[in-house]
Computed example of a mutant assay.
Amino acid sequence: MKKTIERLTPVLRGWRNYYRLDTRKQFWNEMDERIRHHLRELIWIAWKKPKTREKNLVRLGLDPETAWKSSVNGRGAWWNSGQAHMNLTIKNARFARLGLYSLRFMAIC
């Protein structure tokens, strides 16, 4: 995940600088959410097997029963990456610590 974020951050910075005069806060908030949703999807896909997903969800603080139900729900990666079990365990602060550039905090000159 760290390498993905390292490759993504310069692109996001350049993109935000190119559109720096755009002042639509809601748009940039939605784009930020969408990017994190995609990153959570990549994490879900990387966890490949239900047992691995369950183990990692428990390790990240989810209770074992909910982790098991989430890991074997039969839904796809995109659906799971937007659900509470992923948002509660993989918080936005984790992405910030890894260096993900946030599109919403750009100061307008």
Rank of each mutant, 00 (worst) to 15 (best):
residue 13 R to Y: 05
residue 14 G to M: 11
residue 14 G to W: 10
residue 15 W to Q: 04
residue 17 N to G: 14
residue 18 Y to W: 06
residue 19 Y to I: 13
residue 20 R to I: 15
residue 21 L to M: 12
residue 22 D to R: 05
residue 24 R to E: 13
residue 28 W to Y: 13
residue 28 W to F: 14
residue 30 E to Y: 14
residue 31 M to C: 03
residue 32 D to V: 09
residue 32 D to T: 10
residue 32 D to C: 08
residue 34 R to S: 10
residue 35 I to E: 00
residue 36 R to P: 03
residue 37 H to A: 10
residue 37 H to Q: 10
residue 38 H to M: 08
residue 38 H to Q: 08
residue 38 H to N: 05
residue 39 L to C: 12
residue 41 E to P: 02
residue 42 L to K: 14
residue 43 I to V: 09
residue 44 W to G: 00
residue 47 W to E: 01
residue 47 W to Q: 02
residue 48 K to V: 14
residue 50 P to S: 05
residue 53 R to Q: 11
residue 56 N to Y: 05
residue 57 L to T: 00
residue 58 V to F: 05
residue 58 V to D: 02
residue 58 V to G: 01
residue 65 E to V: 04
residue 66 T to E: 12
residue 67 A to M: 01
residue 67 A to K: 00
residue 68 W to C: 04
residue 69 K to T: 05
residue 71 S to A: 12
residue 71 S to W: 01
residue 72 V to T: 04
residue 73 N to Q: 07
residue 75 R to V: 04
residue 76 G to R: 13
residue 77 A to M: 07
residue 77 A to T: 10
residue 78 W to C: 11
residue 79 W to Y: 12
residue 82 G to S: 03
residue 83 Q to N: 04
residue 84 A to F: 12
residue 85 H to T: 07
residue 85 H to W: 11
residue 85 H to Q: 05
residue 86 M to E: 01
residue 87 N to W: 13
residue 88 L to G: 00
residue 88 L to I: 03
residue 88 L to S: 02
residue 93 A to T: 11
residue 94 R to T: 12
residue 94 R to Q: 14
residue 96 A to I: 12
residue 96 A to P: 00
residue 97 R to N: 10
residue 97 R to E: 04
residue 99 G to Q: 01
